[in-house]
């Protein structure tokens, strides 16, 4: 479950650059939200905040039911991050590693047994259509392949929360539709999802509530109780 109460975030205290202002919304466990808005509205910043790449400068935030504030110990954030899967717009793969090793990272950091990791890698890469590219260096992948690798890495450890920033912009239509179906399935199974996109066709295909951002402010929350 996610809950934000009057959350704001400034990029720099000195420059007083307010990126997100006074955000309040909640998403129940297993809830799905589209994150919509024009470029520069703060979608990526909100996803970064939910991914704990930064902390709110004001307000209260609960992530997966746990409080998020500077007062918490660092180990608390490590445990939370291990329960979040993130698909970055620029994929953030490690170029020196193979596809399989990139995808295995979340499991290896959780010290899962290697044989279990290998089984999971085989299954997930087959599912995203990269079963034949297991040992290919990440640097040699096309944009679409990189995006599918990033998606596989974000979901391989079955996180409680999946955040995705334009996860289909390099995918073919059929792949994008498969991905959406999987997101819907994961959401039905109890995974909370927040997906930022500009793709109107996707939004029409998977009709779920949306959060609309403009200039760092939440202008509409379709998931809020009337």
């Amino acid at each position: 479950m996610i809950r934000l109460e009057n959350v704001s975030w400034r990029r720099s205290k000195k420059q007083n650059t307010q990126v997100l202002s006074d955000l309040s919304f909640s998403i129940p466990q297993g809830g799905f939200r589209w994150l919509l808005g024009p470029s520069g509205a703060g979608k990526s910043s909100l996803l970064s905040l939910l991914h704990l790449e930064t902390l709110p400068t004001e307000g209260r935030m609960l992530l997966l039911g746990k409080p998020v504030s500077k007062a918490e110990k660092r180990a608390h954030f490590v445990r939370l991050r291990q329960r979040i899967g993130m698909v970055h717009q620029d994929y953030k793969l490690i170029p020196g590693l193979s596809v399989a090793d990139n995808v295995a990272l979340p499991l290896r950091l959780q010290k899962r047994p290697e044989d279990e990791i290998q089984d999971e890698i085989q299954a997930i890469l087959k599912w995203v259509g990269l079963g034949e590219r297991l040992n290919a260096p990440a640097a040699s992948l096309s944009g679409g392949e990189q995006q599918r690798t990033a998606i596989a890495r974000a979901i391989i450890h079955r996180p409680g929360l999946i955040l995705a920033d334009e996860p289909t912009n390099a995918l073919e239509e059929s792949q994008a539709h498969r991905l959406l179906d999987m997101f819907a399935e994961l959401s039905d199974m109890g995974t909370t999802m927040v997906v930022a996109t500009h793709n109107e066709a996707l939004i029409r295909r998977l009709e779920r509530p949306a959060l609309y951002l403009e200039r760092g402010r939440l202008v509409r929350d379709e998931g809020a109780a009337p």
Partner: peptide, 14 residues
């Protein structure tokens, strides 16, 4: 790479 690993849940100790 450190920032990626940190985001994936690598601890400071690791």
């Amino acid at each position: 790479i450190i920032e990626i690993l940190h985001g994936l849940g690598a601890s400071d100790g690791y």
